[in-house]
Design a binder for these strands. Structure first.
Lengths: 319, 319
DNA sequence: CTGAAAGCGCTTACAG
DNA sequence: CTGAAAGCGCTTACAG
């Protein structure tokens, strides 16, 4: 490249460095030659000199949860807008953690992790490598880890409270994969509130956050238990359950049984579902991730920050 | 790292290179030190030596089309499984092309591009930089460009044919963004078949491939035209139109009007829509992309390959 | 089998 | 204002 333009290596470098001193003529010559050859400076070679790579790892959850799909698409868009380039992992379940280790071979500016997609080993490795980690949907108090989360317990508590006021007494809950923190918290949000009224959760099922999973779970519940309120760990399962109730049973929603979801994904508002749900504020989540990222990058050694977002009840027609 | 293990740089490198000669003891020492420090060889520094980066750019379309969302999630999962690491772009519309130029600063093994998300300038730049390009959902005959696409024209022709046999005569079409190839081809698939029967498309609208766009488009059509068959350029718009017909009009689907989509996204099969549609085979598309990628990588100079996938009519309950 | 040296594509002091 | 040199973290011939 340098010889193509008939200048020194340094000159080429300066031509692409905003604010660097370089004769206008010479700069023009470099840019012209670059255009002709399709040349652009190798960002990775530059990073060996200490520049940021602007590469961030993004680890999402399983692909059965549409909320995760929306999360990743929005996050990618915002990251792009901030000139950060996401290397995306996830969707294939079991091997995700191994994949993260592979991606740690690249000099990442940061790693953004959704929910419970990876374990503590990954995070420990990142801190050894000095790669900041931002957790979305999970909390971890650690030296230089930042977190954004929505009050899960509070969210389903709000839903349960509303349902109780409406006179519901026979509650069931369909949660995400057993063992996940968020799934557990959403469940206890219901059960803790019920206990205050001297009530129990009559039935609990765990599914995979998918539409089909929700439909199967409600079928299994109805085979054994009579209920008048169903709270679900996410919207997709709530929609699956709602669909099953409407098409496979004589039960009327909301006349006989109330259905409430969690997340407020785009589809929840479609007239065909019009799902009452708990908003897990996605805009705010993505916005916070970006804010925490910039803030961490400009001040790598500051203490970890934990940002809590408040859930909000969205009343539509299924409660 | 070398001094931490008390060995030479070369030894460290060999410890991480499968099949390289290195004393077992020494190797163990290197690996132990690496584990302790969280060290892993910088893949980018390695790439300066000529190794592949295993980084591939993935450019998706606007985020309003759920099919693109499914495409990206599946593609990412398959790429991960093949130890390729996708830098994902897109979702924010206008600036996508500029973003691609930015990402071309990284040494990519290949660029995978969905539909009409970027123009010819990007592709030309890639060929100058010797970065292979794989196009999904669009065809471009060029030296070293590979393409996968589904027969759009054939797809809507199949749908139209079925509708005609059912006795439908008054057709409308809701297409994707005006000017997009795929949108145009899907439209002429309908109109060409109608012409054979001496029929015309009574109404055409262009929307943004979203649910809401479909609902607005059908409203606008019904305000001016009486129809008995609606073909849509994708499922999301078909579902939006279907939803509008069911909730905002007295028209019965399929009694009074048939609705057919395109893509066969997961939701189309949900009982709440049960949409008759044209399958745009996603598994096969992603599979082909991976195949073309491997094949191109192992034989960079072979001629461009164009892989056509056949659409298939999926009959459900809305026709 | 293994170390020292060269070199990948850059940028950043350092001289001029 | 700008070139020559050093060095970022690696790997790959090249000697031994």
């Amino acid at each position: 490249m340098a010889e193509a333009a008939g200048v020194s290596r340094s000159a080429v470098s300066r031509a692409f460095t905003p604010g660097a001193y370089l004769d206008a003529d010479k700069k023009e010559r470099v840019l012209a030659a670059a255009f002709k050859l399709g040349y652009r400076p190798n960002a990775l070679a530059a990073s060996l000199q200490g520049a940021r790579t602007n590469l961030v790892g993004v680890v999402s959850g399983k692909r059965s949860n549409p909320y995760d799909g929306e999360w990743i698409v929005r996050l990618v868009a915002e990251l792009n807008a901030a000139d950060k380039w996401p290397i995306v992992l996830g969707g294939n379940g079991a091997d995700t953690e191994q994949d993260v280790f592979s991606v740690l071979h690249y000099p990442l500016d940061a790693l953004i992790v959704r929910g419970g997609s990876v374990g503590p080993a990954v995070i420990e490795n990142c801190s050894k490598l000095n790669i900041p980690v931002i957790l979305s949907g999970r909390v971890l108090e650690a030296p230089r880890i930042d977190c954004v989360y929505t009050g899960n317990h509070r969210g389903t508590e709000l839903a349960t409270d509303m349902l109780l006021k409406k006179g519901r007494r026979k509650f069931a809950f369909i949660g995400g994969p057993a063992g996940w923190n968020s799934a557990q918290e959403r469940q206890t949000g219901v059960s803790d509130r019920l206990v205050q009224e001297g009530l129990d959760l009559l039935a609990v099922r765990n599914a995979d956050y998918s539409f089909e999973g929700g439909a199967e779970a409600i079928a299994s519940i109805l085979a054994e238990t009579e209920i008048d309120a169903l709270v679900c760990g996410n919207d997709a399962m709530a929609m699956g359950a709602l669909s099953y109730l409407r098409h496979q049973t004589d039960l009327d929603v909301p006349e006989d049984v109330s259905v409430v979801g969690f997340d407020d994904i785009a589809m929840a508002a479609w007239p065909d579902f019009d799902l009452t749900t708990v908003r897990n504020p996605q805009d705010a989540t993505v916005f916070e991730i970006l804010r925490l990222l910039e803030s961490r990058l400009s001040n790598p050694d500051k203490p970890g920050e934990i940002s809590r977002l408040e859930p909000e009840l969205v009343l539509r027609s299924t409660h």
